[in-house]
Design a binder for these strands. Sequence first.
RNA 1: GCAGCAGUAGCUCAGUUGGUUAGAGCACUAGUUUGUGGAACUAGGGGUCGGUGGUUCGAAUCCACCCUGCUGUACCA
Length: 444
Amino acid sequence: MVKNNKSKPSKELPSGFVDRQEKELLIRDFVISNIKEVMIKYGFQYLETPSFEYTDSIGKFLPDKERPDQGVFSFKDEKNWLSLRYDLTAPLARYVAKNYLELPKPFKRYQLGSVWRNEKPGPGRFREFLQFDADYVGTRSPQADAELCVLISEILDKCGLDKNDYTVKISSRKFIDKLFDQLKITSKDQKSTTLRALDKIDRLGWEESKKLLSEGRKDKSGDYTKGAKLKKDQIKTIENALKSKSASSEDILEIIKIFEAFNFTNYKFDPSVIRGLEYYTGPVFEVNLNFEVKNAKGQTIQFGSIGGGGRYDNLVSNFGNFDCPATGISIGLDRLVFALMQKKDFKLKSTRPVVICIFDKNKTKEYVGILNRLRSSNVSSEIYPGEGKLKKQMEYANKIGSPAVILYGEDEIKLGKVTLKNLATGNESSVKIEDLVDEIKKII
RNA sequence: GCAGCAGUAGCUCAGUUGGUUAGAGCACUAGUUUGUGGAACUAGGGGUCGGUGGUUCGAAUCCACCCUGCUGUACCA
């Protein structure tokens, strides 16, 4: 609801952007700490690149010359078009190209950062979101591809998911290419339409996807999507190849061998995993959750994957004459957190301060004395930061979830004691100032 | 982009054969308690009923267009 109020600015957010509150942020921090732990263990370097890049550095496909804002957020400074990054892979390729000679080969780095997409927001999908990327640059070894899947799995386990909650699906562009050769499908258009149709099998099922492989499909909203116009026997061959689930592609077989060495079993070969059409060149991965995710209204939503990636051997070479294979994986952290919040009841400590109530404005010295005593013992604490009666101060403490309040008024000052009130139980006790920290630590 | 549904108080929502000053719960403010929160009671504040135009004696309600949100679908580096 955007109210057109000329005198005041809108309090609404731009479409696709959200405020995130502490509960969500604490879970996010928890996820991030797990990620860092795993990344260090696996030997990755930490990298940060800027939010903005030159537009033509972060994607040869974008922006559309006539519509520089399509898909990405862009603006022109005095000379050049700049864009907010839409993923972390393109900046990585740029970084590697820029520092090619100095970097170790292979180069393993991980990165956490927001990315922005100027497109319609969907369920759990926003125009600004936090991404995690781990990439191996400069190696063709299937060990790299395999380890990415293993590491993602380890992160999810640490976050509290168990093996039934998610599956790492793998496939390979080579498997599909082989199929295209076999079927003598050469038209680029037909290939990409076919890939898109296969990508939808998970969501629509075989019958509906088949319509997209042949003439086309009308969805329940009445919208019609043109199909790939394949012949019946071609579709049959594809169906058989996909349903057989035998990984008849060299790269996949090697990866699976390495999975076995790692004792990693929570994967599935699934040729319907397609991912981005343009830049993947070999194995592709996708991490899917196996439980239902609901939105704020309690409706079950099409959640899709929480992450994925694959091998992109040509991306770095876009920037120069490098032969630089690479493979990577990413997780959409906000989406993962959104799902985790529903799956698990996190008891993450959100430490709220002990509140020291104010009785007399002229006793600041006494209050600060108590405050310092608490803070120097690392007890989260504050002097009531407002103005008002004790009742108001109590209401405040209650509302912020404070564990206790300290009453230090005329009576207490005379006695050299403070009154400590446990807000959970309502108990009050009179304690000596020297014992205050110990007593509070019993409560929090 | 296309389609379905929705938009009434800060939040969740009720309110159609069109009819006085538009309601509830929660939240908020004040009080019952001038040194005590979470419960209760009392009182109070808060709305151009998403916007604009139209039909009508009269519109939250009917019509048209627009905006925003949700869901699906398309596209997606």
